[in-house]
Design a protein around this nucleic acid. Structure first.
Lengths: 211, 211
DNA sequence: GGCACAATAGCACTTTAGTGTTACTGGCTG
DNA sequence: CAGCCAGTAACACTAAAGTGCTATTGTGCC
């Protein structure tokens, strides 16, 4: 089977692991290149295998699936990772995507769906169950929140805040804008009043967004 | 047809508009509640219709589809918008999602796919064509920053810095971690030494990256 | 067992940031 | 034209952040 998709399975629960193995190795066009119960074992073997796709559980003992993807994606950017989990909690989804997972599916999907997802992620696609796609899409909405904060501040106030957010002191910002330190204070004061905060960092987090 | 999905079409190209209309009104379970060639006309009529789903073209004369969604989603949050376009350019995708679009499909999808997408977005899902899902997922991939700053700091130091970057005062961070304010000071001192800086903001910009 | 180091904590002191209040100027607008 | 507002600036004061120095505890390593 020369151009079958080489798949590695990382899953700690024995039953699930074995049924995934059976599913993949029993199917034409798919080949199981390795099966591991822990991230550590999979990471150790990865350089010798370099599969096309890794089916990665999130909840693993020791190094969890997300951390494993983070490490492996750095070293093997050409491998596509498909997260496979029972949880649909938002934090995990985004952490997995940040770490470099290409797709995110829920375990109780039908075998056919899982095979399709493997194929899709192998082709550089991004398989997601509908519920997860919804959360991902939704996350873009909240980013565009608070249209007011920008509009509230004047151009000069934004300029001052930008300099301070770069880490400049009042004194340094004043020098850069050829203003007195007192003027920087004044601007800050007004910004704080408008945004209902009382430190630089709070204002910066609101206006420029948190990391 | 009491519980058919009420769909509004906004599309400037006559041929596409009419074939979409034919597709939707000819299908059981779907009802076309309005057809418009411009965003302005659709916006004007929207309060009288309030459909379930709006099929919105992006390239429209005058107000474009993204701007239309932005305006309408604010006023009618319960309407689900499905962007329908020939372009897959990344900027447009993200702008549309930020504006509040629930799904994003490519026009040359099969009629069946389009109907499915309408149904999915109506149920709060997030239909995306594979190519678009891929771009969305990839946008989450963070560039691995040089581990220098990351590795330099201990887990505890990172934890403290994270809290301070959220805008907490030393006092508040101390309370949250059940530490003394002096300990927070100590941690900061060490962080500053390691990173060769002398304010919170500089450290935060180095460790978490600038906006 | 000795050593290095992270985490904790205290005290005294300086520097920066933030608050309350006031004041002058120049544009824009009803 | 009178009034509002943004931008500028000052002074006095309080609060918070940052610096220097020291000390105790626990963990891991040679």
């Amino acid at each position: 089977m020369a151009n079958a998709i080489n798949v590695v399975i990382v899953e700690d629960v024995r039953d699930i692991r074995e049924s995934l193995l059976a599913l993949i190795s029993g199917m034409t066009g798919y080949h199981c290149a390795g099966v591991y119960a822990t991230a550590e074992a999979a990471i150790a073997d990865m350089p010798a295998i370099v599969p096309d796709v890794v089916l990665m559980d999130i909840n693993l003992p020791g190094i969890n699936g997300i951390e494993a993807v983070r490490q492996l994606k750095d070293r093997f950017p050409e491998i596509n990772f498909l997260m496979c989990t029972v949880f649909e909690d938002t934090d995990n989804i985004f952490r997995a995507l940040e770490a470099g997972a290409g797709g995110y599916i829920v375990k109780n999907n039908s075998p056919l769906k899982i095979l399709e997802a493997i194929k899709e992620v192998n082709e550089g696609g991004a398989p997601m169950s509908a519920a997860i796609a919804k959360k991902v899409i939704h996350s873009f909405r909240k980013v565009a929140k608070e249209p007011s904060s920008h509009a509230l501040l004047s151009a000069r106030e934004m300029e001052v805040l930008q300099l301070l957010s770069d880490g400049l002191l009042y004194k340094e910002a004043a020098d850069k804008l050829n203003l007195s330190v007192e003027t920087i204070r004044s601007h800050c004061r007004k910004v704080y009043e408008k945004l209902h905060v009382n430190t630089k960092l709070e204002a910066i987090n609101i206006v420029f967004g948190k990391r």
